[in-house]
Every structure is written in C-alpha cells, then in structure tokens.
C-alpha cells in the first residue's frame, strides 16, 4: 500500500482529519526546505505538499507567486526539489510527500525520467495544476506502473460529469479547490463546500481533501468536520515571506500555526473552535 493510502487509512481509523501543509521548495533558500518539512511533521502535519517552483504560476495568488520568485532566485530546479525529498527521507520514511507544480518542468525533464527520479527520491504523489485528465494520457500509465499517485483537482465549476471522469482516474486523494480563484484568495463559503464535498464523496471512495481559503485553525476545524484532509498553503508561506532572511523565525511561526490547526482538527468533535496562533 502506498504511503498516502496507509496514512489516510490510519487517520480514518483514529477518526482524524489529515493536515496537509504546503511550502514552495527552496523558499526562502534551498537549505531551509528539509528542515521546514521535518518541523511541519513534528507540528502535526500528516502529508507534506511540496511546491515545485515555476516561473509562471497561473493558478497561484501573490503569496505563492512571490515564493516561487524567491526560490527561482536561487535557480531551484526540479532535480534539486527531488534531492530535497531524498534528503527528507533520510530521517522520515513514513510521511507522504506530494509534489505540487505546473506540468512544464515535468514535461521538460521527460515524463519517464521524471517518474523514475521521483520514485527513487521517495515522492508519493504529484499534483500538476494545469494537467487535466484529458491531457494526462501519457503520464497516467507511467504513474500507475511506478505506484505513484497522480492527484487531481476538482473545482466549484466541475460538473457531475467531470467529477466522475476525474474520480475515475485520480490517485491518492481528490483535492477540492474550495473557491473560484487563486491560492490565498478570500473566504470560502462553508455550506457550498460541504455540499460539493458530499457530491464528490458520492462518486469516489478516495479521501477528499479541501484546499484554497483555509487560513487559520478555525477554518481548518470547520472544514475538517466534513473533509478527510485540509490543505494549507498561503497561510504558511506568508510566514516565510515575513522572515525572508530568517528561516528559523519563519519555522517557529509555521510550527505555531500548524500546532493550532492540529489541535483544532483533533478537537473537531468537541464543537467549539480552539483559539490559534494563526
């Protein structure tokens, strides 16, 4: 069983919601990333979503755009990102790592070579934001063969037909983009998200994660009541942006934010949201 599947199974048994933080690899500098990853796991992260920096992050808001620019100022390449995952695996062989990026760097490396290198590095899944299933005919069989999960996004605009089409090929979990917009955008409408997640659940047995618009322990807890996973990106990256020259300071703030979210998620049955550091 893949790390992603066994992680979700264990969480389901314990009645817990997965906490999935996102950082951009190499932000603010390449040597900070592996430390951030370990610290996030210690603070309660169940899966790490690691952004592959791209020059033209069309689905991202200003916070993650700036993170890509900071990483690319150090010329962080896909190969280096994979090396970071490999380094992370030296001390952590259990926490799933999902790469999130745009398809061009994967395509330029060559799909076959990428799949081989990602598997060797210890990557478990990949989200290619601009690769809908219609364009994934070449990549999907390579992923299946290697036991890697190609994780797909679903959006508020996805029709039932598209939900079915995507769930039929999706691996690992399904990532519901909770709002029409870019990462780090305004507030999500909880009732809409809950309804849509229920609709997705009726079409797949895969765990359903929710991302975009989760900024603090309160929203994490609210969404955690009906989702299998919450994904937090811009709220974390903001702390890195605030401390570009001091990764230690950034790490401390990230740990506090995630700790608050973890506690809030674990208390979700208790009802009242926990105050957080976010």
């Amino acid at each position: 069983m893949s790390r992603i599947a066994s992680t979700f199974n264990a969480l389901a048994e314990a009645g817990k919601t997965a906490l999935i933080p996102y950082i951009t690899a190499g932000d603010p500098q390449p040597d900070a990333t592996v430390g951030f990853m370990h610290a996030m796991v210690e603070a309660g992260a169940d899966i790490i979503e690691l952004g592959v920096p791209f020059s033209d992050p069309m689905a991202d808001g200003p916070v993650i755009q700036a993170a890509c620019e900071r990483a690319l100022a150090h010329n962080v390449s896909l190969q280096q990102v994979l090396a970071m995952v490999k380094a992370f695996r030296e001390r952590d062989n259990d926490t799933p790592v999902v790469l999130m990026g745009y398809v061009n760097p994967f395509e330029v490396m060559g799909y076959a070579r990428f799949v081989k290198a990602a598997t060797a590095a210890g990557v478990d899944g990949v989200i290619a934001v601009d690769l809908p299933p219609e364009e994934a005919d070449t990549l999907l069989p390579l992923f299946r063969q290697a036991g890697l999960d190609l994780v797909f996004l679903l959006a508020p605009t996805s029709s039932l037909q598209r939900i079915q089409k995507i769930c039929a090929v999706a691996g690992g979990f399904v990532y519901y983009v909770s709002l029409k917009g870019v990462t780090g955008a305004a507030s999500l409408n909880l009732d809409d998200v809950r309804d849509k997640v229920a609709r997705i659940r009726s079409q797949t047995k895969l765990p359903v994660g929710v991302g975009f618009g989760i900024k603090d322990a309160v929203t994490a807890q609210q969404v955690g009541r009906f989702a299998d996973a919450v994904v937090v990106g811009s709220a974390i990256v903001r702390h890195i942006a605030a401390n570009p020259a001091d990764p230690g300071q950034a790490q401390q703030a990230i740990v506090e934010l995630l700790g608050g979210m973890r506690a809030a998620l674990d208390e979700k049955e208790a009802g009242e949201p926990t105050a957080s550091a976010g």
Binding site: M58, A59, V103, V129, D130, L131, P132, E134, E135, F152, L153, L154, A155, P156, T157, S158, S159, R162, I166, V177, K180, G181
Partner: peptide, 20 residues
C-alpha cells in the same frame, strides 16, 4: 475535437477553468 494540432495545442488549464 480535443483541440490538438498534432502534438501541439490542447487544454492545459486548472480544473476551475475547464468548465468555462
């Protein structure tokens, strides 16, 4: 029908834009 000129073209957009 899927918007390809041989190897080129296609529809490489985030899921939110597929419906529009």
């Amino acid at each position: 029908a899927s918007g390809h000129f041989g190897f080129y073209g296609g529809r490489f957009v985030a899921e939110t834009l597929m419906q529009p």
